[in-house]
Structures are given as C-alpha cells and as structure tokens.
C-alpha cells in the first residue's frame, strides 16, 4: 500500500496530502471503471430502471441487517439485492410490462425497508445511506471494491460475446446455443453486488446515475462497441475525479457532484450528436 500513497502524493492535487482524501480518490478511481463496465451493458439492455430499483432495494437489505442485529449490513444488502434482481428477471418475461413489474418490486422493496427502519421513528439514523459518504471509506472497503472489479472483468471476459448477442438479438442468441436466461442472471447478480458494495459510498439516490450516465453519454457519439466501452470508462473516470475535486472545494456530497459532471457530459455529447447529424 505504501507505494500507492507515494505515487498519489506526486499528483498535482493539494487535497492528496490527507490520507482520507487519498482513500476517497482511490475509491472513485476503482469505482469509475467498474461502473462503466456494467453501465454499458445496462444501457444497451434497457435496464436503467432495473438498476434504479436495485439501488432502492438496499434499504430493505439494511433493514433486514438491523433486524438481525448486524452492525455491518453489507452481507444482507448483497443477498437481498441478488434475490431481488433474480426475482425481477424471472417475473418480467411474463405478460405485464416490465416497467410495471420493476416499479412494483422497487416500491415494495423500498417500502419494506422504510417500514423496518422507521420503527420507533428513527429513520433519520439511516439517512446517510441516501446521499452516501465516500470520505469515510476504509482500506478494507477499497480492497473489497478491487476484488469486485477483478471479478467483473473476469466474468466480462468470459461472457462478453453471449451478453452482447443476447442484448442485440435474443432469438439469434438462442439459435447459437447461448443460454440467454443464465447470461442475464449472471449479469444482474454482478450489478447487484457492485451496487450494494458501493452504495454506502455513493448513496441510494445517486448510485444509479453513476451507472447510467457515463454509458448514456458515450453512446450518443460512438459507432462501435469497443469505442463505446473505452469512452464510457474515460467519461466515468473524468467525472469521478472532477466530481471529487468539486466536492472537496465546495463542500458538497461527492456522489452527487460526480453525477452532475457526468450529466454535463451527457448533454455535451447529446448536442454533439445532434449537430453532426
């Protein structure tokens, strides 16, 4: 870990003299590519609303965690997130529109969470989860995020072709012997783990924008899949770092500041695409 610290101190940011800012810096540096990776596919598969629902369901995970008397509810959050995403994927193939299904699941999960957490009127205690706080990230958290990032790249490499095929043309995928259901399930589980691991840092209210905005911005201007991925990663990284700098200078929430910068990128690329047409 020492060499990372030394390297960070070489960077031209004055705030990197503080250890807690170093950790926050590393956290967004790890999260940006992770979110970019998953974001491209989420946007491609029209799952923006799904990941939003997932973020909200974190409240229920936290609630179950407190009911069980756990001090660190992360495990419950991940377990419930995986359960919910599999449930949504299972149910949404039916007759009701997937919009409605996701909305039903999302609001139910959120309501259950609030019911549990607002027992005895104490919901205020948990409101830090809504906005998130990247400043208190510990080295243990960083390690966890790093592991999830490696895992995601690994699974990505294995499943990339089938995922792409499923998202472009499901029936073609089936004819090529791709197990569409399995592929989709692995993907949603990955999204669930990523969202839950980072929600304490980024906040329930803003986490989905971090997943969607860089990918959406990149998609406005790219023409092939490779460029799409790299541009998303670049936009993710730039917004994450500028967001963190902004939040440091202005004393605002890091998660929300990152989202604002990413949104700016979206509108820039959106109008660039308009003009080029």
């Amino acid at each position: 870990m020492e060499w990372i610290n030394t390297m960070l101190e070489l960077l031209p940011f004055s705030f990197l003299q503080y250890d807690f800012m170093k950790n926050a810096f590393l956290a967004v540096l790890l999260l940006a590519p992770l979110f970019a990776l998953l974001g491209t596919m989420t946007v491609n598969n029209n799952m923006a609303f799904f990941s939003d629902a997932l973020g909200h369901s974190a409240l229920t995970g936290i609630g179950i965690g407190t009911l069980l008397g756990l001090k660190e509810p992360l495990f419950c959050m991940i377990a419930f997130g995986i359960f919910l995403s599999l449930a949504i994927t299972k149910v949404k193939d039916g007759t009701t529109s997937s919009d409605t299904i996701i909305s039903v699941f999302s609001s139910t999960a959120m309501a259950i969470g609030i019911v549990i957490l607002s027992q005895e009127g104490g919901f205020a205690k948990f409101s830090s989860y809504l906005i998130g706080d990247v400043l208190t990230v510990t080295q243990k958290d960083l390690l966890l995020i790093f592991v999830v990032l490696l895992l995601s790249y690994f699974i990505w490499a294995l499943l990339y072709n089938s995922l792409l095929l499923v998202s472009v043309n499901p029936s073609l995928a089936v004819s090529r012997n791709v197990n569409a259901r399995f592929t989709e399930n692995v993907f949603v589980v990955l999204v669930a783990i990523t969202v839950m691991v980072s929600i304490r840092l980024m906040g329930i209210l803003t986490i989905n924008s971090l997943l969607i905005l860089p990918a959406a911005a990149a998609r406005n201007v790219v023409t092939n899949a490779k460029a799409y991925h790299w541009l998303t990663t670049a936009i993710g990284l730039i917004s994450a770092l500028s967001g963190l700098v902004l939040s440091y200078e202005m004393g605002t929430s890091a998660g929300a500041s990152i989202v604002v910068v990413a949104a700016l990128f979206f509108f820039i690329t959106f109008f660039m695409a308009k003009i080029n047409k």
Partner: peptide, 15 residues
Amino acid sequence: EENQTPSAKELAQII
C-alpha cells in the same frame, strides 16, 4: 449526527 455529514474541506481544516 444522523443527517449531517461533514464535508471534505471541513475535515481537512480540522486536520
């Protein structure tokens, strides 16, 4: 406490 979170700047100043 509960609904307030200190900003990075505030922490840096205190440090």
